[in-house]
Computed example of a mutant assay.
Amino acid sequence: MATPDPNVRISNAEREAVIGRLHAATEEGRLELDEFAERSRKVYEAKTFAEVEQLLTDLPKTTGALAVPAERTTHPAPALELTHSYTTLRKDGAWKVPARIVVRPQHGRTVLDCRDAVFTSDDIEIELDLKYSGFTLVLPEGATAVDDNVQLDGGRVFNRSRAGGDGPRFRLTGRTHFARVHVRYERRFLWWRW
């Protein structure tokens, strides 16, 4: 990181970074406790980097600049990747549904039965990359699914989702290459359910 302009006002995060540097110097024995308390007070009173830099001149520079914490970035939750060829892959029962699923079959069939699944998020993105394949999503009661972002290069999308449910919301994205996508709820006939 470049050395900040001494005339720029200091932020709260940058103040905390300076306090952290003073605390580290105290732990190393470079500052006494009363010096640490006095300098910390001055850091909180400082308005610009120039006022803070003079509090650090007699301490070794570990990075050559004020240690300003980087902004925290939230990493997306890892996706469940389903990649298979010439076979049928089925997820059903009490399986854990992550917030993002990537489905990449070639000449295969994928069935995601979510009727009894455990959801980690209310919004689930399913990214499709289907080649000569079939994909079926069985929704639990109250769930909804939107397929507006699926690019079709042959094939069709059959979405029988009903709007206005209070359950999980599925968003289908990606593309299909001569593939069929079915989104439906549970089917019943007498005592059979599928």
Rank of each mutant, 00 (worst) to 15 (best):
V102F: 14
D116I: 04
D153E: 15
R184F: 00
P140V: 01
R160N: 10
R175V: 05
K131W: 15
D122C: 05
L172V: 07
V102K: 13
F170G: 09
W191R: 04
G167F: 09
L152A: 03
R188L: 11
C114G: 01
H107Q: 15
S121K: 07
L139H: 01
G164D: 00
H182G: 05
V118M: 01
A117E: 03
Y132M: 11
V118Y: 00
V146F: 10
L190T: 11
P105R: 11
V118P: 03
N159T: 14
G108S: 03
H107S: 15
I124T: 07
Q106N: 12
L152I: 05
P168A: 03
F119C: 08
N159M: 15
F119M: 07
R171C: 02
R109H: 10
D148F: 05
I124P: 04
G108K: 05
E186S: 08
D123V: 12
P140R: 01
T136Q: 13
R171H: 04
A179L: 06
Q151D: 10
L190Y: 08
P105K: 08
L128V: 04
V150S: 10
A117V: 05
G167W: 07
E186N: 11
L130R: 07
R187H: 09
P105Y: 13
L112D: 08
T144W: 01
L130K: 03
P168H: 02
L128D: 04
V102P: 02
D148Y: 10
W191D: 02
R175I: 03
F178Y: 14
R169S: 14
R175M: 09
P105V: 13
R180K: 09
R162C: 00
C114W: 01
T136A: 07
G155N: 02
R104N: 11
L172K: 11
L130F: 01
R156M: 15
Q151L: 11
L152W: 02
A143P: 15
V181E: 03
K131H: 07
A163F: 12
V102R: 15
G142Q: 07
G154R: 00
A143Q: 12
R184V: 02
T173I: 01
F178A: 11
F135E: 00
T173Y: 02
V150R: 13
F178G: 10
I126W: 01
A117L: 06
G164H: 00
D123L: 14
D166P: 13
N159F: 11
N149P: 10
R171F: 04
G142E: 10
T144I: 00
F189E: 13
R187I: 03
G155M: 03
L190N: 14
D113S: 04
R169M: 12
R156S: 10
V146Y: 06
R104K: 15
D147T: 14
E127R: 11
R104C: 15
L112E: 10
E186W: 08
H107F: 15
E125C: 00
H177A: 12
Y132A: 12
V102M: 05
E125Y: 00
T173N: 02
P105I: 13
P140M: 00
L112W: 13
G134Q: 05
D166L: 14
R169I: 13
V111M: 10
D147S: 15
G134A: 05
F178K: 06
L172M: 08
V183E: 09
A179V: 15
F170Y: 10
T173Q: 02
V157N: 05
R184W: 00
L190D: 09
V138S: 02
L152V: 09
T176R: 07
V118F: 00
D166M: 06
C114I: 01
T120L: 13
F170W: 14
F178D: 13
